[in-house]
Write a protein that binds this DNA or RNA. Structure first.
Lengths: 248, 248
DNA sequence: CGTCGGGTTGATAACTTTCAAATTTCGTGG
DNA sequence: CCACGAAATTTGAAAGTTATCAACCCGACG
C-alpha cells in the first residue's frame, strides 16, 4: 500500500522504482505516539525529522502568558521539523493531535537519500516549500482577514491538503481539531470560533461537527474566503520542467 | 569595504579568502532601483534572487479588497526571493521601500557557488532559515500579541537585524517605514499604529520620528515586548559544530 | 501659493474578548 | 447498559480593543 507521503510526492514528480525504494527506506523507523505526545520541545536541538504516516500533529509556540499560537498543522504525508532540523534548534514545539504513526528520519539518512535521488530531493523540497507558503498564507489570514473569512479560509486549506493525500474530497474531511485548537491556530478565542462556525452553518456554507468538516456549499465558501489554492497546487509539470532545466 | 551580506555571513561562520571571493562574485550584477520599484510581481515566475546591498525592500501579498499584508521586510545583507526561486513561482510581490542597490543572482550561479563552498552554502541557508524563523515570529506576533506589544516587538526585531549588519545599535536605527507600511506589516490600521507609537513614546520606551526609531528605554521595551532574540542570534559556534559533524 | 502625502487627534462604530453559565458529548467505572 | 465526571461546545451580556470616519496640521515640492 502507498503511504501518504508517497502519494503526495508522486503527485509532484514521477518517481521510478529505485526512488520509491529510497523513499520507503526513509520510513523504516516507524513508531506510534499517543495523542497529546510532544515530538519536539521548544528550544531543544533535535537532529532528526519525522515523516507523518497517519494522524495529525501541530507546531506551536507558547507565550509567557499561557496562550499559544499554532503555527501550522501537519497532516499525513507531511514532513515534520524539516525547517528546524538542518540548521537551527527548534523554535517551536510539536504535539500530536491524535494518535499518530511517524517515521523518524535522521539528517544523515535524509542527505543520503537526497544524494541518491535528486528528483526525490526536489519533490521533498517542493513539499517543504509548499508548507512554507502555507505559513505565509496563514500570516495573511491572521493579519488581514476578518474572523469569519479566516475560519473559512483555514478550513478550506485543510480540506485541500487532506484531499491531496486521499483523506478528503469536495464534501469534507475528518478534522480532529477542537475549537480551542482551531482558535489557537486562527488567533481567535474559542468562543468566537464557535460563533463563526455557527454563522458558517447558518449560511449553509459549512458544518463542523463531531470531528468532521462538511462543505455544504463549496462554491459559496470559496467565494467568501477568496480561496485560491494555487499556493499548494500540484504543478507537477512545472517541477518536472525545472528539473530538466538543471539537468537532474 | 565589506558589503552587508559579507558582514552578516561572516558573523555566522568564518569564511576563507576563496569563499569570500565566491561571495563577492555573486554580487557582480549590481543595479540600482528607485524607491517604489517592484522587484518581483505576484504570480510571475522569476528564476533569480537578489542580494540586497543597501536600502530596504518588503515582501507583501495584496488582497482583493485593496488591503495588503506585508510578509517581511529585507534589510541590507538579506537575500530576496530565496524561497520562491528554487521551486515555486512567486507567491508575493517585492517592492523597494527606498532607493536600493541589489545584485541579481541567477539560480545557476547560486548553485555553482554552493558547489564551490559548502560552508558558504551553509551560511546562506542559515540566513534563509533565520528569515523564515522571523516569519514565524511575525505570525505569533500578529496572532497572539496586543497591538502595542506587537509594535514594540516588531521594531525591536528590526533593530536587532540592523545591528547585525552594522546599521544600528542599542540607541536605535534609521527606519524608512511609513506608519501605513508599518500598519500593513502589523495587521493594524495606520491610525492605530500612530496611537501605539504615541503610547510607547509617552511611556518613554521608544520614539519613532523622522525616519528614526530611538530606543529610549531598551530594557523596558524588551520586557514589554517579551522580546527574545534567540531566533535570530548569531550562533556561529553551533553552525560550525554542525558543519564539522557533516564533514564539510 | 496650492497641493499632496504623511502624521496626529477625536468621536463613533464594529469587532472580538472576557466573564459567566447552561448544555452536550464522551470516556470510564459500576 | 447506565451513571458519573471531565472536557468540549454553545449561548448571553458586558467590557475592551481596534477600525472607521472626519478633521486638522505640517513639511516637501512644483
Amino acid at each position: 500500500m502507498q503511504t501518504a507521503i508517497e502519494k503526495k510526492l508522486a503527485s509532484y514528480v514521477s518517481l521510478d522504482s529505485a526512488e520509491r525504494l529510497t523513499l520507503s527506506r526513509l520510513q523504516h523507523h516507524r513508531s506510534v505516539r499517543p495523542a497529546g505526545a510532544t515530538l519536539v520541545d521548544e528550544g531543544q536541538p533535535k537532529p532528526s525529522a519525522y515523516i507523518l504516516a497517519s494522524g495529525w500533529v501541530f507546531a506551536y509556540k507558547g507565550l509567557r502568558d499561557g496562550s499559544r499560537q499554532i503555527i501550522d498543522v501537519q497532516v499525513p504525508g507531511d514532513l515534520i521539523g524539516a525547517r528546524n532540523v538542518l540548521f537551527r534548534t527548534s523554535e517551536h514545539s510539536f504535539e500530536a493531535l491524535t494518535d499518530i504513526v511517524v517515521s523518524e528520519v535522521s539528517v544523515g539518512d535524509l542527505f543520503k537519500a537526497f544524494g541518491e535521488s535528486p528528483r526525490l530531493a526536489a519533490a521533498m523540497l517542493w513539499a517543504a516549500s509548499c508548507e512554507e507558503a502555507m505559513v505565509v498564507e496563514h500570516l495573511v489570514d491572521i493579519g488581514r482577514r476578518s474572523a469569519i473569512v479566516r475560519t473559512a479560509h483555514y478550513l478550506l486549506e485543510l480540506g485541500a491538503r487532506m484531499k491531496l493525500v486521499g483523506l478528503g474530497d469536495e464534501t469534507g474531511f475528518a478534522c480532529p481539531l477542537s475549537q480551542f485548537q482551531l482558535a489557537d491556530a486562527l488567533g481567535l478565542t474559542a468562543i468566537h470560533v464557535n460563533r463563526m462556525l455557527r454563522q458558517l452553518r447558518e449560511k449553509k456554507l459549512l458544518t463542523f461537527q463531531k470531528g468532521r468538516v462538511a462543505f455544504d456549499n463549496l462554491e459559496g465558501l470559496v467565494a467568501l474566503a477568496e480561496f485560491d489554492m494555487s499556493y499548494l497546487d500540484h504543478s507537477a509539470p512545472l517541477l518536472d520542467q525545472r528539473l530538466r532545466q538543471w539537468g537532474a
